[in-house]
C-alpha cells in the first residue's frame, strides 16, 4: 500500500503537505474551495500575545517570479484565536500548528503558555487542540523582535530556551534565511530541545518607487516569497537537513508537485506551501494528486524511499 504519511515530533501527518503561516489564514476560507481535511497540516497566521493592526501603506508588491509582503503580523491576538478560531479548528483533521510571533521574550513566553494551557484543557476534554507550536523568530516585517531574534544564533538561543521550558507541546522553530549562519541556528535549536525545524521564512527584500523616490513599503523592507526564492530555500533545507537529527519542515517557493519532491529529496520530512496558495486556491488538492502520480510513475511506496537521498 502506498502511503504518504510521516511523523514529526511524535505527531502523525497523513501526508507531507502543510499550509504555511500567513498564506492560509486559519483555513476557514480555503475550506470553501476544497476539502482541507485532505491536508497534512495547517500552520496558522502568526499569532502574537496582543492583537496587531499590522503595517500601514502598501502591503503587497509583485516581483519577477515572486512577491514582497509587508503585512506586519496583523492578527487577532492569541486570546481571540483560542476563543474564536479554535472553534473551527476543532472541527478539522489536519495537524494544527500555532505559529507564534512576538516582539520580546516575555511576549513569546506568555503566548506559548496560553496556547499550551488551552491545548492541555481541550485534550482533557477529548477535544481537538493545537498539536504543535511553530516559533517564528524570523518575521522581517515587524520593527522590534521578529527577525531581530532570527539573525544571531546566541540571541535566538535565549528565546528558544525560554519557550521550550514553558510548553509541553512539540516545538518547531521557524528560521529566517537572513540568519548569519542558518546551519548554526538549526543546530542551536536542536540543542535547546526543539523537535523540528521549519525553514525558510521570507527573504528581506526591497522595492523603490523611482518617481516618488521612496521605498514602496512604509517599513522600508519587505519579505520576498514565491518561486523566485526556491533554489536558495532548497539549498538551505539541504544544508540544514544534513546537520540536524530532528525533522525539517522545508519551504520556499514550492509551486508544483515536483518542487515538493525536490524538497523531500533534499531532506525535508514535511513541506510547507505558502505563496502557491495565492496562485492556486486549490493548491493542496492539486499537489497531492501530483505527488501520487509521481509515486506511481516511479513505483515508490513511501516517501521515505526518496527522503534525503541527495
Amino acid at each position: 500500500m502506498k502511503s504518504l504519511a510521516c511523523e514529526v515530533a511524535g505527531i502523525r501527518f497523513r501526508n507531507p503537505i502543510v499550509m504555511a503561516s500567513g498564506t492560509f489564514g486559519f483555513g476557514k476560507e480555503y475550506a470553501k474551495m476544497y476539502d482541507i481535511n485532505k491536508l497534512g497540516g495547517i500552520s496558522c497566521k502568526g499569532l502574537t500575545l496582543h492583537p496587531r493592526k499590522g503595517n500601514g501603506g502598501a502591503r503587497l508588491m509583485e516581483t519577477s517570479g515572486g512577491m514582497l509582503n509587508s503585512i506586519g503580523l496583523e492578527n487577532p491576538g492569541i486570546d481571540a484565536f483560542l476563543r474564536e478560531e479554535m472553534r473551527f479548528w476543532e472541527t478539522i483533521e489536519p495537524v494544527k500548528i500555532a505559529n507564534l510571533g512576538g516582539s520580546n521574550i516575555e511576549e513569546y513566553v506568555l503566548g506559548a503558555m496560553k496556547i499550551t494551557q488551552d491545548a492541555e484543557e481541550r485534550r482533557k476534554q477529548n477535544r481537538r487542540a493545537v498539536d504543535m507550536i511553530e516559533l517564528n523568530i524570523s518575521c522581517p516585517n515587524v520593527k522590534e523582535g521578529g527577525v531581530a531574534f532570527g539573525i544571531k544564533t546566541e540571541v535566538a538561543r535565549e528565546v528558544v530556551r525560554e519557550v521550550r521550558q514553558m510548553t509541553s507541546l512539540p516545538l518547531a522553530v521557524k528560521l529566517s534565511p537572513n540568519a548569519e549562519n542558518i546551519v548554526h541556528m538549526a543546530v542551536m535549536c536542536e540543542e535547546e530541545g526543539a523537535e523540528a525545524i521549519s525553514l525558510v521564512n521570507t527573504f528581506t527584500g526591497m522595492k523603490i518607487d523611482i518617481y516618488q523616490r521612496t521605498s514602496v513599503f512604509k517599513n522600508m523592507y519587505a519579505g520576498l516569497s514565491g518561486p523566485a526564492i526556491k533554489p536558495i530555500a532548497l539549498r538551505m533545507v539541504h544544508e540544514v537537513a544534513k546537520q540536524v537529527e530532528v525533522p525539517v519542515m522545508g519551504m520556499g517557493g514550492i509551486a508544483s508537485a515536483s518542487d515538493v519532491i525536490e524538497f523531500i529529496m533534499a531532506g525535508a520530512s514535511i513541506v510547507q506551501i505558502g505563496t502557491y496558495n495565492f496562485m492556486n486556491l486549490r493548491a493542496g488538492e492539486e499537489l497531492l494528486a501530483g505527488i501520487n502520480s509521481y509515486m506511481e510513475l516511479e513505483n515508490i511506496q513511501s516517501l521515505d524511499e526518496i527522503r534525503g537521498i541527495i
Binding site: 498564506t23 493592526k53 509582503n69 492578527n75 486556491l281
Partner: peptide, 25 residues
C-alpha cells in the same frame, strides 16, 4: 492590491472606524 482574494492573507487590510477590515471579504 490582493493576494488571496478570500480573506486569508491580510494583504488587503484597510483601516476603518471599526478597526481593520479586509477589502476582499
Amino acid at each position: 492590491r490582493m493576494a488571496c482574494g478570500i480573506g486569508a492573507c491580510y494583504g488587503c487590510s484597510t483601516s476603518t472606524k471599526q478597526g481593520n477590515k479586509k477589502v476582499c471579504t
